[in-house]
Design a protein around this nucleic acid. Structure first.
Lengths: 257, 257
DNA sequence: CCTGAATTGTACGGTTTCGTACACAGTTTC
DNA sequence: GAAACTGTGTACGAAACCGTACAATTCAGG
């Protein structure tokens, strides 16, 4: 790809959180790459030689199964990486990784990261912990898919995007969201209007703006926040408002602030 | 627990499929345990000191989130193990593991398996591959939860249970299934009747008997079989009727035969 | 055998979501 | 500035599913 430059400082939480010696070990192998929207970082079954530590933008994990249209089963932003599973085993990707919101990433070759992980147990187990956070996210997505209605699921998804893009403007179309959620576009349009009517978001063509994050979180109830707290717990993140099992998601549950 | 005896021969696919030297290494540490129905092998957040290689019976992975009732997000039988994730990291279980169908398992302590995995990369990466199969299963569960109706989801679930119990009689109540699927009991009753009307199953009080597996598989369409083929692929299982992407699930897609 | 508990059958109005369709608005291309 | 494309608003009947409720059946224990 293009846009490969040398690295100044990492904006990726996994890189920022790993042991300094591990970070220093892989540092020379990292190169920054731009991630334009609508490209695939990995395709199901196609070996990928690169692993991406996302610095900005949003990647969706898409599950196709044997169906025509895929479904979004996971989200990755600056809190995560793409390709962790191809690291721990010589396996082909099991899902598509699709750039929903353009951004950039620090990229390392699979062989380089694999070598590093084999030489440092600490690094390997650190990255494996991240895999567990993805499992947690997916598990809670199952729960929400079954129990929450379209409107709540949409709100949840917007919050998850908001956590990752960092700004309040989310470049998403109704069609976009409808495919990711596996519902009709008309259902998304209706849900968007409803959330807009409450004053929580503002919708324009191809753009959703978050205006009242707390309102959205409250509306989602138990369907937002659990995955985010688990991420913190698994990766040992300490946040100022660390309220363990209180109902109040406290606004700092994710990776936003 | 009770029922701990010495081991004669493993009926667990993971143990059967691992490298002989790895199996021999952990063999002395394994003890057989009976798994009575309705107990929990792991609870979310409670450290578990045991890891279970399931020989028979069915374990559900239950996700509670912050909700009152849990949802089944994964199934484990003789093809798998409970506690794999607490192996690769010193993490608490992130989900409940509940014995849906009684059976037995070969049990090893976490510290023993952890030591073995640290001394054998091959073993570690083998078990990590199994974790990937669980992710695949969960990912396809998301897909099915969003796109398939209750009747198809029920059929899919019955097939997955059938794969794991080995016999045609599944000890499940309607209430049981309704909780696992997150729907009304009445919805399950209706779906059961419908599947029964097609002659694919036979239902009695607390018991569902599979009578026409192929019929069920055909009815599920793309919602059954993909996860099972991925398991084979990830774990490098070779089966006689290995038809890669043909629509025919061929009856040997799972771990049944 | 009797009683209580567990399981299953069934009903009804209400809500959500679907499938499909068509009109309109904003953006890009030529 | 006209055409083509993309994105959004809206409608309508049909289907799926829900919440709730209650009766009937089967099983387990005394």
């Amino acid at each position: 790809m293009q846009g490969s430059t040398s690295v100044a400082r990492a904006c990726n939480d996994l890189l920022a959180g790993m042991a300094p010696q591990d970070r220093q070990m892989i540092w020379p192998d990292l190169h920054r790459e731009e991630l334009p929207a609508r490209i695939y970082l990995e395709r199901t079954g196609d070996r990928s030689e690169k692993i991406y530590f996302i610095e900005s933008g949003v990647i969706s994990l898409l599950e196709t199964g044997d169906l025509r249209e895929p479904i979004e089963v996971g989200l990755i932003g600056r809190e995560g990486m793409v390709g962790a599973s191809s690291l721990v085993t010589d396996l082909f990707p099991q899902r598509d990784s699709y750039v929903q919101v353009a951004g950039r990433a620090l990229v390392i070759t699979r062989s380089n990261l694999l070598r590093a992980a084999r030489s440092s147990d600490k690094l390997l187990y650190y990255l494996l912990r991240y895999v567990q956070t993805q499992i947690a996210q997916m598990s809670l997505t199952v729960s929400a898919s079954v129990r929450a209605n379209v409107q709540v699921r949409l709100a949840r998804k917007l919050l998850m995007y908001h956590d990752r893009v960092g700004i309040d403007d989310l470049p998403l179309t109704h069609e976009n969201m409808s495919i990711m959620m596996g519902v009709r576009r008309a259902s998304v349009t209706h849900a968007i209007h409803s959330l807009e009517g409450e004053g929580w978001i503002r919708a324009q063509r191809g753009l959703v703006t978050i205006r009242d994050r707390q309102g959205l979180e409250k509306y989602c109830g138990p369907f937002y926040g659990v995955a985010e707290r688990r991420y913190d717990q698994i990766m040992n993140i300490q946040r100022p408002t660390r309220s363990d099992h209180l109902p109040r998601p406290s606004g700092a549950a994710g990776m936003s602030a």
